[in-house]
Simulated assay, not measured.
Amino acid sequence: MPTGVALRDVREQLFAAAERVLLRAGPHALTSRAVTAEAGVAKGVLHKHFADFDDFLASLVMDRIARISAAEAGLIAAAGTRTVAANLRVVLEELFGSVAVAIISLITFRDDLRARLRAARGAPGVPLLGEAAAMIAAYLRAEQELGRVAADADVVTVAGMLIGTGHLMFADRDGTAPSSSEVDRMLTAALAGVLG
Rank of each mutant, 00 (worst) to 15 (best):
M1C: 12
P2E: 07
T3P: 01
V5M: 00
L7N: 09
L7P: 05
L7T: 09
L7W: 14
R11A: 01
Q13D: 06
F15P: 04
A17M: 15
A18R: 04
R24I: 05
R24L: 14
A25P: 07
G26V: 15
T31W: 11
S32E: 14
A34S: 15
A34G: 04
T36I: 04
A37K: 13
E38W: 04
A39Q: 10
V41R: 13
K43F: 08
G44K: 00
V45W: 06
V45D: 08
V45K: 08
L46P: 05
H47Y: 10
F50S: 00
F53V: 01
L60K: 07
M62A: 13
D63Q: 15
A66E: 05
A66K: 11
E72M: 03
A73G: 02
V84Y: 11
V84W: 10
A85V: 04
N87D: 12
L88W: 10
R89E: 14
V91W: 04
L92N: 00
E94Y: 10
V99G: 12
V101E: 08
I103D: 14
I103C: 14
I104E: 11
I107H: 10
T108F: 07
R114S: 06
R114L: 03
A115Q: 08
R116M: 08
L117A: 08
L117S: 09
R118D: 09
A119D: 07
R121F: 06
G122N: 04
P127V: 02
P127H: 00
P127R: 01
G130P: 01
M135I: 09
L140K: 11
R141L: 10
V149F: 12
A153H: 13
V155Q: 02
V156R: 14
T157H: 02
V158D: 03
I163A: 01
T165N: 09
T165F: 13
H167K: 10
M169F: 08
F170Q: 06
F170A: 09
S179F: 10
S180C: 05
D184C: 09
L187N: 04
A189E: 06
A189Q: 06
L191A: 06
G193D: 09
